[in-house]
């Protein structure tokens, strides 16, 4: 019994140690901005391409389907209350405030986050990071920091595109298929959606998520055990921790935003 308590304590301390390591890594990444170096911007843009542009297909398709499903389900239920004209606001508010940032972040973690963790973990396993260190090039600046900035920049942009695609999907189902009046759809939406409370807050959420998801991916990759099992673990941990963190932070942020910050 006492052993169990000891184990619990040890794992708690281990968790605190990991948090500390992540914090130190973050410090090194943030305050050694690659921009200062000659091709920092080039490195970052390469990462924005790899993480953002290449994730577009999954984001756009998901957005479209989520918007369409929302419209279908929403109409089904709203019609019972005779409130079908609220379909526009329903979809817009759900997507802008919650679904957009959260779903995009989780999809991003699955596609780009795992790719990052695996890539960095593999570089560790094949001694590429050690080689770089021994060649007097700081791998944190050269490899890790551009990837952090790439994700941080990509996710809000992806969220914007997801939002628009989802609303467009809802328009397709609501107006083209179910036969709503396009004008009412948009004008009801416009009168219910507030730019600052809804659009901007959603973007703020996605900025926070972008930072957290990329940070988790980079950390897991960098500290992965340099074996194939270690890398596999790193990728699964990336997606699990990222998803949990996104959902948890979403709750916290929503509470702050609703309370009116």
């Amino acid at each position: 019994m006492l052993n169990r308590v000891g184990d619990l304590g040890r794992s708690g301390l281990e968790w605190v140690r990991e948090l500390g390591r992540a914090g130190l890594l973050l410090y090194r990444m943030l305050f050694c901005i690659p921009n200062i170096r000659k091709h920092g911007l080039q490195l970052i843009s390469q990462q924005v391409f790899a993480e953002g542009v290449l994730s577009l297909s999954i984001i756009v398709v998901s957005g479209l389907f989520i918007g369409m499903v929302l419209a279908l389900q929403g109409h089904h239920t709203l019609a019972k209350f005779g409130a079908s004209m609220e379909l526009g606001p329903l979809v817009a508010l759900s997507v802008l405030r919650e679904l957009g940032p959260v779903v995009t972040a989780i999809l991003f973690a699955g596609r780009a986050g795992t790719a990052l963790a695996a890539e960095i973990g593999l570089m560790q396993a094949t001694a590429q990071i050690s080689s770089m260190e021994m060649m007097a090039v700081d791998p944190v600046r050269r490899i890790l920091a551009p990837r952090l900035w790439g994700g941080f920049i990509s996710l809000p942009l992806l969220t914007l595109i997801f939002n628009v695609t989802a609303i467009y999907g809802a328009w397709l189902v609501g107006v083209q298929w179910l036969g709503f009046d396009s004008g009412t759809f948009w004008s009801n939406m416009q009168s219910s959606v507030d730019f600052h409370a809804d659009v901007v807050n959603g973007i703020i959420k996605s900025i926070v998520f972008g930072f957290v998801v990329t940070m988790i991916a980079v950390y897991q990759g960098y500290f992965a055990r340099p074996t194939s099992a270690g890398i596999a673990n790193a990728t699964t941990r990336t997606i699990v921790y990222s998803s949990l963190a996104v959902l948890g932070l979403d709750f916290v942020l929503t509470a702050m935003m609703i309370g009116g910050w």
């Binding site: 593999l122 094949t126 001694a127 590429q128 050690s130 080689s131 260190e133 021994m134 060649m135 007097a136 700081d138």
Partner: peptide, 19 residues
Amino acid sequence: LYRLRRKIGMLFQSGGLFT
């Protein structure tokens, strides 16, 4: 340390080439 490392060349067991 980085200045010193420029005078050292190291060959790792797995090569460590950038893929």
